[in-house]
């Protein structure tokens, strides 16, 4: 007997979810760190010695970004990454809740974080092209179509 009859497409989708989980987790961590630096910079602008960091933080202040917003974006990014990681397991195990609904929540989360980032962050902090654009605009929609359309039967409640 073969080990599993999981469709290859589900495996491919799980691999992509894993990839995007990593690509969501790193900006999330970076934004949480930035929120601490921003808070410190607002308390004492002279404390930031690095010129590049200072320019970066000042562009955030010019765009009226406050540390809480930055922190929230970071946490949301990490939550989305966690959801994507859970969905990887769910897709591989063909689990209805973790696979189908984990992916759905992750897709909505990815789109929401991207939309919030466009609203909150200044333009120079966004590189909404190339790979990032795939994640922001294309991949969540693609993921929803796949788990609710193509793999609907494979991820049903057993």
């Amino acid at each position: 007997m073969a080990i599993s009859d999981r469709p290859g497409g589900l495996t491919a989708l799980a691999a992509l979810n894993g990839f995007f989980a990593i690509s969501c987790a790193f900006p999330g961590l970076q934004r949480i760190l930035s929120s601490y630096r921003l808070r410190a910079h607002l308390d004492d602008p002279e404390a930031t010695a690095d010129r590049w960091s200072r320019r970066n933080l000042e562009s955030l202040i010019e765009a009226d970004v406050d540390p809480q917003q930055m922190e929230l974006l970071g946490i949301l990014g990490l939550v989305v990454a966690l959801l994507l990681a859970v969905s990887v397991w769910g897709l591989l195990k063909r689990n209805h809740w973790a696979g189908k609904w984990g992916s759905t929540l992750a897709a909505v989360g990815m789109a929401s974080v991207s939309w919030l980032a466009v609203q909150v962050l200044p333009l120079d902090q966004l590189r909404g092209v190339g790979m990032d654009l795939v994640r922001q605009m294309f991949y969540p929609l693609f993921l929803l179509i796949m788990v609710h359309g193509i793999f609907r039967k494979d991820l049903r409640l057993r």
Binding site: P7, G8, G9, L10, T11, A12, L16, M146, I150, F151
Partner: peptide, 8 residues
């Protein structure tokens, strides 16, 4: 799509 080649 189901086999993964379409996804790729």
């Amino acid at each position: 799509l189901r086999s993964g080649s379409g996804v790729a």
